[in-house]
Design a protein around this nucleic acid. Sequence first.
DNA 1: CTACGATAGATAGCAGAGCTATCCATGACA
DNA 2: TGTCATGGATAGCTCTGCTATCTATCGTAG
Lengths: 211, 211
Amino acid sequence: MRISELVERTGVPLATVKYYLREGLLPPGRAVGAKLSLYGEEHVRRLALIRALRDTAGLPLAGVRTVVAVIDEPSPDPVASLGRAVAALPPAIAEDRHGPYPRAAAVAREIGEHIDPESTAMAQLEDALAAAESVGLGISPERARCYAEHVRAMAEYDVAHVPSGEAARSIEHVVLGTALYEPVIAAMRRLAHQDVARSAGAGGVRAEAED
Amino acid sequence: MRISELVERTGVPLATVKYYLREGLLPPGRAVGAKLSLYGEEHVRRLALIRALRDTAGLPLAGVRTVVAVIDEPSPDPVASLGRAVAALPPAIAEDRHGPYPRAAAVAREIGEHIDPESTAMAQLEDALAAAESVGLGISPERARCYAEHVRAMAEYDVAHVPSGEAARSIEHVVLGTALYEPVIAAMRRLAHQDVARSAGAGGVRAEAED
DNA sequence: CTACGATAGATAGCAGAGCTATCCATGACA
DNA sequence: TGTCATGGATAGCTCTGCTATCTATCGTAG
């Protein structure tokens, strides 16, 4: 299809599509002569991906670039690629950051024994815990245990349902699942707060806990 | 304390503190004469709150303003205030947005029966589900059921542990808990993926699912 | 009592992200 | 043969979140 049709089908403005092409987020179309390129379904899908990562996952375009780079290239080292992609997801962590992460370590112990103490997610957890603590919302061991139990159960479902088969496809699934299911879970939790608060009774503090 | 001490204790640059004062995010100090104001512990806490909401929860300053406004004013209608505050949390939803939210409704049914179909969280869930779907990661009813179960369990813990007592304090707790525990849960989920993937065995697809 | 350094308040500038708009030359197509 | 979409380049624009500078004032040490 021509660029005008791509624009029409995705709803992304022409100037923006050109910008994404310039930035290398969207691969160039198949050139037909010097003044015409044709685009395919993969361009439609890529645009949807860019918008989803940007709008829903809140990724800056630099992060989108990292993620699509991992998805595009037939990665020689899948584990390393995956690490890079997930590290590009928000919240941002300084590259030279490293442990120890005391708060995170305590919580991680509740989750499992096979956690790399230097992974980006540890730094993210440490920051999140420190921020909560700094405003008087420190997480009790009991709460950590509760969250750990349920988060682990969801992760078990996730891992069991990663499509087996081609490695590239699995990686894409894991990266996008991490990025795009997080907002889903967050929204579901807000709804659950509503529901639980209303179920618990109509008056007092609990009724105020509606979203 | 003087402004210089406030700067020193929080690590926030002087120019930035002045900016927050200008923007009304930080209440003015107690004026002592025309050229000196004194600040207290509440200013230290407020600065920590602003930075936590901005850096960890990813709130734009306009959203921080909304949240602190709700926390500050002794709200006449707690439920309404709470709704405004939680609606200010990312991801952003257009003010005039309204249902129906078909994808979200299907998932919400798994969570509970007491959900307001017009709440902001429904719109957020709808967008998140649509985004996931648009890149081929639509959520199966089975997955929705799994997530709903565990999210609800966490929400039950949360609601049961909201401090009872003064309403203002409860509201603050709920708003900040919503905003600041989401990143905690997200990071924990990433760690759980790591752990489950490694526990499941060393080779093949599952080993690639490390973060 | 005086000089110095901190302060309040105002204003201007700046950097990065993410577009958006314009221009031009070309070439497809009617 | 004329018109219009296209590719390619470049410039500019808006918003957010600071940062820097200037000035007048004031508390306080010497």
